[in-house]
Design a protein around this nucleic acid. Structure first.
Lengths: 190, 190
DNA sequence: TTGTAATTAGACCATTTGGTCCAATTTGGA
DNA sequence: TCCAAATTGGACCAAATGGTCTAATTACAA
C-alpha cells in the first residue's frame, strides 16, 4: 500500500500499473492480486487509510482555548502533516481535483460535521471579539490551502526557492510566516 | 484543445483516450491525429497555452502602487482566474503535483524571473514600512495557494458549503474574506 | 470548374495492462 | 516433521488504446 500510494501520487492511478506497484514493493504481481482483488480495491484501501491520517488533526480545538494560540498550533500541525506525509497530501489533492469520484461520499459527511464544529467555535470566538470579523469557512479553507500547498506544489516551490519543508530552517520560516500572515495580516500596525 | 483540456483536467492524461477527446470535440479521431502527431504533443500544446493564461496576471504590480491596494487587486485578479478558468487551474495543479515532468523546464525560468520581480517590489515595500515584516516568497505562495484552492478543491468546498465561485455572492464574500485575512489577519485590532 | 486542404471511416497492428488460473515452491508455526 | 498459508512464475486472455495507413469524401478558395 505504501508503494501504491507513492506511485499513485506521482503518476496517477491510471498511470500506474499493478506490476509497477509489485516491483516497487518487492513482491510479485500475483501476490498483489492475492491480497487485493482489484486495482480499484487497492486504490480504495489506500485512499481510506489516507483519509484517517488526513482528517485526524482536524479534531483539535475548542472554545476554551485562546484562539490565536489554537490557530497557530493548528497551522503548525497541518504544516507538519505536509512535511511528513507529502504523498498522502498529493494523492488526496489529485483525488479531490479530479472530482473525488469515490471519496465524495466517504468525505462529505465526516468532513462537514468536523467542519461544523470548528466553524461553531470560530464563530463564537468572533462574537466574543477574540477574533476579527471573519467567515469561519474561509478561514479554514485558507489554512488548508496554504499548508497543503507546500506539500502539493513542492516542485514549484523548490524551483523558485530551491528549498523544501525537509529543510529545518525553511520549515520554521515557512511556519512563522504563515502564522503571521493568517493571524496578523500584512498591513503594518500603526 | 478545449476538449482535451477539459478531459485531462478531469481524468488525467493517462485516463483520457484520444477517442474521447475526438468525440467531445465532435471530430474524428483521425482528425485529431491529423493536427497533433501525438497525444503527448497535444498535451504539450494544451499545457503551453494554459501557461500563458496562467502566468499573465503575475505581471501586475510595481513599486509606485499602494501595496495594500496592489495586493488586494492581485488577489481579486487571481480569484477571477480561478472562477473563469477552473479547468486550466486544475490541470496546472495536477501537472505540478505530479512533478511537472514537462513543465519543469518551461516553468522554472519564466516563473523564477517573474517572481524575482514581485519579490523585489514586496521587499522594498517592507523596507519602507508600508508592509509588515513578511517574507515575500511566502506571501506570494500564500496568495496563490488560497486563490487556486477555490478552483482546484471546488468539489470539497461545494461539499462543505454548497456553493462555488460562480455564485456571485459567494465569490464576493470569498474575495473579501481572503483579502481581509491576507491583509489584516484575524487577530482583532485593539 | 478545379485542385488542394480538410475530414472521415475504418481496417489494422503492436503494446500495455488488468485480471484469471494453476502448478510449484517457500515459509513458518504447531 | 507436517500442514496450511504465503508467495511466486508464468501461461494466458480480453479489452483498451496509441498510432499508422489508405482510400474516399467533403469543403472551399481561386
Amino acid at each position: 500500500m505504501k508503494a501504491a500510494l507513492d506511485l499513485f501520487s506521482r503518476n496517477g492511478v491510471n498511470g500506474t500499473s499493478i506490476e509497477q506497484i509489485a516491483e516497487k514493493a518487492d513482491v510479485s504481481k500475483s501476490n498483489v492480486l492475492y491480497y487485493f482483488k482489484n486495482k480499484e480495491q487497492l486504490y480504495i484501501e489506500v485512499i481510506t487509510r489516507l483519509l484517517e491520517i488526513w482528517l485526524k488533526p482536524l479534531q483539535s480545538f475548542s472554545i476554551e482555548q485562546d484562539p490565536i494560540e489554537a490557530l497557530a498550533h493548528y497551522i503548525k500541525v497541518k504544516l507538519e502533516l505536509s512535511r511528513d506525509y507529502p504523498a498522502e497530501s498529493k494523492l488526496f489533492c489529485m483525488e479531490v481535483v479530479q472530482g473525488a469520484p469515490l471519496l465524495i461520499q466517504e468525505l462529505e459527511s465526516p468532513l462537514t460535521t468536523l467542519i461544523e464544529n470548528k466553524v461553531a467555535v470560530i464563530k463564537e470566538w468572533v462574537e466574543q471579539g477574540k477574533l476579527a470579523e471573519v467567515d469561519p469557512y474561509h478561514l479554514i479553507f485558507s489554512i488548508w490551502a496554504i499548508t497543503q500547498h507546500y506539500a502539493d506544489f513542492n516542485v514549484q516551490i523548490q524551483a523558485v526557492t530551491g528549498k523544501n519543508l525537509n529543510n529545518r530552517a525553511f520549515f520554521n520560516s515557512t511556519l512563522i510566516n504563515i502564522q503571521n500572515i493568517i493571524l496578523e495580516g500584512v498591513r503594518p500596525r500603526v
